[in-house]
Structure formats: structure tokens, C-alpha cells
Design a protein around this nucleic acid. Structure first.
Length: 139
DNA sequence: GCCAACGTTGGC
DNA sequence: GCCAACGTTGGC
């Protein structure tokens, strides 16, 4: 099992929107960045991911599961762009803010901390464990 | 609202 | 294939 992080502006697509989709889930569409697309191509069904709110909130707020592997993005005719489908698993008991991540030496190498502009990222097993711990949920 | 970082585009 | 110009993202 691998771990990932999905970044979204809450005003565009929030954790609450994702939860509202329930088990059916939703395409993680609209990605127009090769690096982020390549990350999504690595994902397998059953992989887990963090749902991160960018902009005003800047915090990991929930956990999602990959329910469909990379396929063409239905929001464009351009066949270069692909996306996966994800469903909400559950919220963190305590949101884990970017400031908290920056303040923890164990997360110093995290993509979230070092490459702010990448919207879909890999997360290591260790980072996953640490953030779940800070968020008050089982890994 | 500003700006740094970074990705993309297009002229040469 | 290089690089300047431009656009976008996201933290502050």
C-alpha cells in the first residue's frame, strides 16, 4: 500500500464536498500538471491519501481511498490529462496544519513542506504514521 | 494583495 | 534546444 496527498482549494472542492459524494467517490479531475499526473498514474486501488485544504486553511483534514486507477480526465478532450477516483474515508480528529508539519523534524523532507506548488504528492509510510498520530487517528 | 517558485509557451 | 516572457499556485 502506498500513500499520497491531494491538495485542493476548499472554495473549489472541499473535504465536505468529498464526504457528500460518499462511497461513490469522485474524479480528482482538473489536474493540468505533468508531475501531478505522473504521481496519479502510480496509484493503485486501495491506496490511501490525505486530503489537504490549501489557501486559508492549509491543513490536512481527512483521509481518502483510491477507488479507480488513472483514466482519462472527463473534463477535457485533451488526452494527455488523466485522473484517479477517490472516496472519503474519514476526517482527522484534529486537522494537521502546514505549520505543524514544518515544525516537526520527522516531516522535514515532506513534499508538502518543500514543493508547495505540487497538487498531488507521494507521502512516505513514516510521514503517514506521523501525521495520523498528530491528527488523532489510526494509521 | 503581494511575491516567490515553478511550469509552460513560443520566438529564435 | 535555449531562454525570455508570461501565467498560475499557494504561502505569507
Amino acid at each position: 500500500m502506498n500513500y499520497w496527498l491531494f491538495k485542493s482549494e476548499p472554495s473549489t472542492w472541499s473535504w465536505e464536498d468529498q464526504v457528500a459524494k460518499g462511497a461513490v467517490g469522485e474524479e480528482w479531475d482538473g489536474v493540468r500538471n505533468y508531475q501531478a499526473r505522473n504521481v496519479m498514474r502510480e496509484m493503485k486501488i486501495g491506496d490511501r491519501g490525505f486530503f489537504y485544504h490549501s489557501q486559508s486553511e492549509k491543513a490536512v483534514v481527512g483521509i481518502v481511498e483510491v477507488i479507480a486507477e488513472a483514466h482519462p480526465d472527463s473534463t477535457t478532450e485533451d488526452e494527455r490529462w488523466e485522473c484517479v477516483d477517490i472516496r472519503a474515508v474519514g476526517p482527522l480528529k484534529t486537522p494537521v496544519t502546514l505549520a505543524m508539519c514544518k515544525g516537526d523534524a520527522r516531516l522535514a523532507g515532506m513534499v508538502l513542506v518543500n514543493n508547495t506548488r505540487l497538487s498531488v504528492q507521494p507521502v512516505t509510510a513514516e510521514e503517514w504514521r506521523v501525521i495520523c498520530e498528530m491528527g488523532g487517528v489510526a494509521p
